[in-house]
Computed example of a mutant assay.
Amino acid sequence: MGSYKKCLLLALGASLVLSQGIAQATNFIDVLDQPARLSTLAVRSPLLATARAGDRLVAVGQRGHILYSDDSGKNWLQASVPVSADLNAVSFPTPQQGWSVGSDGVVLHSSDAGATWSKQLDGRQIGDLLVKHYSALAQAEPGNEQWPQLVEDGQRLTKEGADKPLLDVWFANDQLGYVVGVFNLILRTEDGGKHWTPFQDRIDNPQGLHLNAIAAAGDALYIAGEQGLLLKFDDTQQRFLALPTPYQGSFFGVVGKPGEVLVYGLRGHVFRSTDGGANWAPLNTGLQVNITAATLDTDGHYELFTQAGQRLVSQDGGQGLKLMAQQNPSPVAGAVQAADGTLVLVGNRGARVLSQE
Rank of each mutant, 00 (worst) to 15 (best):
V255P: 02
K257Y: 03
G286V: 13
P282G: 03
K232A: 14
F233N: 05
S273A: 03
K232E: 04
G276C: 12
D297T: 10
A293N: 12
A278M: 11
T245Y: 04
Y247N: 07
R239F: 03
F271V: 06
F233V: 05
G276I: 11
P258G: 06
T295P: 08
L296A: 06
L243I: 10
G286D: 00
G265S: 09
F251C: 02
Q237P: 00
Y264A: 03
A242V: 09
I291H: 07
E260V: 01
V270W: 01
P244N: 12
P246D: 09
Y264E: 10
L241C: 10
N279F: 03
G259M: 11
R239H: 07
V255Q: 15
Q248V: 06
T285C: 10
L266H: 11
I291Q: 09
G276L: 11
Q248T: 12
V270M: 07
T285W: 11
G253A: 05
F271K: 08
V270K: 08
L266C: 08
K232H: 12
L243F: 03
W280S: 02
Y247F: 14
G277S: 01
K257E: 13
W280F: 04
G256I: 07
G277D: 06
S250A: 12
N284Q: 15
V254D: 08
G259C: 06
V254E: 06
A242Q: 14
A242D: 05
V254A: 04
Q238H: 14
R272A: 06
G286I: 14
Q288W: 03
G253R: 03
I291T: 13
N290E: 12
